[in-house]
């Protein structure tokens, strides 16, 4: 027994010493502030923010990871990082304005600041593709989350076999990163194929869905790693086309999109079968999720 001249319970601290509340940086829902250093309009509805941290600390990330972007008082949304992982001093996000938060973000000006939490989630495992042909398959805004991977692959180009970018956009006016695509297409060590759903103006390139570009081949299916990002329906068709070509499921990677309210595994919104997409994804190796990918409305 405790030698109880005073009752230990009379002193709350003696009963149980609660650990001091987690402060500031330890609070996973508290954003860091970043200033908009540059704002680039990509398309009518799509813009790129180049952000600098107000706290001076940069942000290291891996290709495919995302941040939660907070517009003061309006809300917070998950957006993939579209910059070059080799340069952590500037944080780059490319966003399509589709609703409340992304439209509010679209109205911000250089010099204003936004909140950032992250980086979160799994990454495109470029390291797993060493020695393989690399197939980067993007639909629409899905090119943005793949852009850091393209940078990584090109930075260590000789570790990979052939490198192909297959990109589908709705119309020629919806093609993202056109200058970069041109520069990549001009290289002798990679190929870039772009297709549009609907040709307009002077377009004389491919017309049709991106799966057609997969069917054209130009890679060694048995030794190919494919990284696919776009609307779920587009990914569905692409995965089927890749499988038909002979690419193995364990060498296909996809990035999943789900509603996200926390990005740290506690709000439950992003659940997909047993996975928290914010934590176990957004990038998944396809063979690990192939069974649930096929289930309706999961």
């Amino acid at each position: 027994m405790a030698e109880a001249s005073t009752h230990p319970a009379a002193n709350p601290a003696a009963l149980r010493a609660p650990e001091p509340p987690a402060r500031g940086a330890a609070d996973p829902m508290r954003p860091r502030r970043f200033r908009i250093a540059r704002l680039r309009r990509e398309l009518a509805d799509t813009f790129t923010l180049e952000l600098e941290p107000l706290d001076g600390a940069g942000m290291h990330f891996k290709p495919g990871q995302f941040n939660m972007l907070y517009v003061f008082g309006v809300g917070e949304v998950p957006i993939s990082i579209s910059g070059d992982p080799a340069d952590p001093s500037v944080l780059v996000h490319t966003t399509r304005a589709v609703g409340t938060v992304t439209n509010a973000m679209n109205r911000l000006k250089a010099g204003q600041s936004i909140g950032i939490r992250g980086p979160f989630g799994t990454h495109w495992p470029a390291e797993a593709a060493h020695g393989d042909d690399v197939l980067i398959v993007a639909g629409g805004i899905g090119l943005a989350p793949l852009r850091p991977l393209i940078h990584t692959v090109l930075a260590e180009r000789d570790r990979f076999g052939k490198v192909l970018i297959l990109y589908g956009a709705r119309t020629p006016e919806d093609i993202l990163f056109t200058r970069e695509l041109k520069a990549w297409r001009g290289r002798f060590d990679m190929s870039v194929h772009v297709t549009v759903d609907r040709a307009t103006g002077a377009w004389n390139g491919h017309v049709g869905v991106v799966t057609r570009l997969i069917k054209m081949g130009g890679f060694d299916p048995g030794n190919t790693s494919a990284f696919v990002c776009g609307p779920e329906a587009m990914m569905r068709f692409c995965l089927t086309a890749l499988a038909e070509k002979g690419v193995r499921e364990e060498r296909m990677f996809i990035s999943m999109e789900r509603n996200m309210k926390c990005a740290v595994g506690v709000c439950g919104h992003c659940q997909w079968g047993g996975h928290f997409v914010c934590r176990d994804g957004p990038v998944f190796r396809f063979d690990k999720v192939a069974d649930i990918f096929r289930v309706w409305e999961l």
């Binding site: 509340p21 500031g24 829902m29 508290r30 954003p31 600041s113 909140g115």
Partner: peptide
């Protein structure tokens, strides 16, 4: 979870959930 104050060009977090006993 959080309170923040506008600073004109941006904002400042004035308190977050972890700050409270």
């Amino acid at each position: 979870l959080m309170r923040a104050r506008s600073t004109g060009s941006g904002f400042e977090v004035t308190d977050s959930a972890g700050d409270h006993a």
